[in-house]
């Protein structure tokens, strides 16, 4: 299974370092009308007392069975052989926005020439054995570059640890 980028929502604090690191890596300049490949959302939820907030850093999910690839009429969206990510060949893109319609996450954005622009999983970096720029910069370790099952194992181990601590301090409720 290929590695891709995961977000530990509990650790994301919405600092935006990932957004900027991506722009620095990929020479994206907002003042030239170039859209970011990654965005951060602050979600507020009303509670009885005040609000709860959480943050999400989002970009292309590099779906295994990607709807954008299926929707693209010109074959501009392909699976990258080296990383397994969803890659764009801009020279084939006709700017028809079919991928925007197909993508369930609202990810596709279009550059000043109207062509699809999105995260390419930093494929050149990954091939060179480096992490994607957003993962490398994240000060909270919220973005993780790994394969799905490894990420799940980490999550599971953390949950197990938590349960063990609760049992140690509060008992298992069976006594």
């Amino acid at each position: 299974m290929d590695k891709t980028i995961y977000l530990d929502v509990k650790r994301c604090v919405g600092c935006g370092a990932c957004v900027v690191a991506c722009m620095d890596q990929n020479d994206i300049y907002p003042e030239k009308g170039q859209p970011a490949n990654r965005r951060v959302y602050q979600i507020e939820e009303n509670q009885d007392q005040g609000i709860d907030i959480c943050y999400l850093s989002v970009a292309c999910q590099h779906c295994e069975d990607s709807p954008c690839t299926m929707a693209c009429p010109t074959g501009a969206i392909r699976r990258d052989a080296a990383t397994g990510g969803v890659a764009v060949n801009k020279s084939l893109c006709i700017g028809c926005h079919s991928c925007a319609i197909a993508c369930p996450f609202g990810v596709p954005r279009y550059d000043a020439e109207g062509k699809l622009q999105k995260c390419n999983l930093c494929s050149e970096r990954v091939e060179a054995g480096l992490e994607p720029a957003c993962v490398r910069v994240c000060p909270q370790g919220a973005l993780i570059f790994d394969n799905a099952n490894s990420v799940q194992s980490l999550k599971e181990a953390a949950a197990a640890n938590n349960i063990a601590r609760i049992i140690r301090t509060q008992g298992d409720g069976c006594n």
Partner: peptide, 19 residues
């Protein structure tokens, strides 16, 4: 990028440093 040698930032940066 952040320097991994730095004992404080441990290879990471914030959005300002990344700029």
């Amino acid at each position: 990028e952040g320097s991994k040698e730095n004992p404080y930032s441990k290879g990471t940066l914030c959005s300002k440093g990344a700029s």
